[in-house]
């Protein structure tokens, strides 16, 4: 049976982890390689790096991070943040990323998704959807959730599937950082409209939220950042909890 994946996400800025695990015995708490290794040793099904480097001149740092991590972690590695072109994707894949997530660039020009999935295969193209509820439906936001696009999130999800996305990483911008749980309605609505796997993101504050993401949101994978970063829960604890609730996980 296919297991539901638990994906810890690390925010990386200028090659350093900005929100990281608060372990005292860490030699270097800001080292993304070391943190990723802790997660993969702890049973993470996949590792996600979100590059939030703002300035262009420091963009190169993420490539070094990916290169080093892929030599130490032998679970899938997804990298997103600032991915704009086929060249960016190619570079990340060559550095050892297994999947690349595309956000703003896909909204601006869906050709990036069509062409990259043709060139590199759908298996490595994840489209990241940042959505906010507008009272009636959900709308796509870009630039890290700062810019409204006026595009309907559900329609967009369907379109991205047609363009060749292998997976959708759906983040509720209303919930992101709130720790009150995923936007279940958003997840389950998109999940029911597409035939590709959905990764739920944004809002996890406890382990029940992960359970809800799978059971109610119909997500195939659940992504979380802060509950793992601050050592509130380990990936192992999360998996054991999901298992106790009857959700198939890899233990």
């Amino acid at each position: 049976m296919l297991k539901n994946r638990i994906i810890p996400c690390l925010d990386v800025k200028n090659g350093r982890v900005v929100k990281g695990i608060n372990f005292v015995d860490l030699k270097d708490a800001g080292d993304p390689v070391e943190q990723a290794k802790i997660y993969s040793d702890g049973g993470a099904d996949e590792i996600c790096f979100l590059d939030i480097t703002a300035s262009n001149e420091n963009r190169e740092t993420i490539y070094e991070v990916v290169k080093k991590t892929s030599k130490k972690c032998f679970v899938p590695l997804t990298v997103g943040g600032g991915v704009r072109s086929l060249e960016d994707i190619n570079k990340l894949l060559n550095c050892g990323a297994d999947k690349v997530s595309i956000n703003t660039a896909a909204v601006q020009n869906s050709k990036v998704v069509i062409e990259s999935s043709k060139k590199f295969g759908s298996q490595c193209i994840v489209v990241a959807i940042d959505a906010k509820h507008n009272g009636k439906s959900w709308e796509i936001f870009t630039h890290g959730g700062r810019k409204s696009s006026g595009i309907d999130a559900i329609e967009y999800a369907k379109k991205m599937e047609e363009c060749g996305a292998g997976e959708l990483l759906v983040t509720s911008m209303d919930r992101d950082g709130t720790q009150v749980g995923y936007d279940i309605e958003l997840m389950s609505t998109i999940s029911s409209k597409v035939n590709i796997p959905l990764i739920a993101s944004g809002g996890v504050g406890n382990l029940d939220h992960l359970v809800d993401g799978v059971k109610l949101g119909n997500a195939n994978a659940v992504l979380a950042a802060s509950i793992f970063h601050y050592g509130k829960y380990s990936v192992k604890q999360a998996k054991e909890y999901l298992d106790s609730k009857g959700i198939p996980v890899r233990i």
Binding site: L2, R5, D45, G166, N220, A221
Partner: peptide, 8 residues
Amino acid sequence: KLPHIGWN
């Protein structure tokens, strides 16, 4: 769902 992605 396809692709069959994940741990089995």
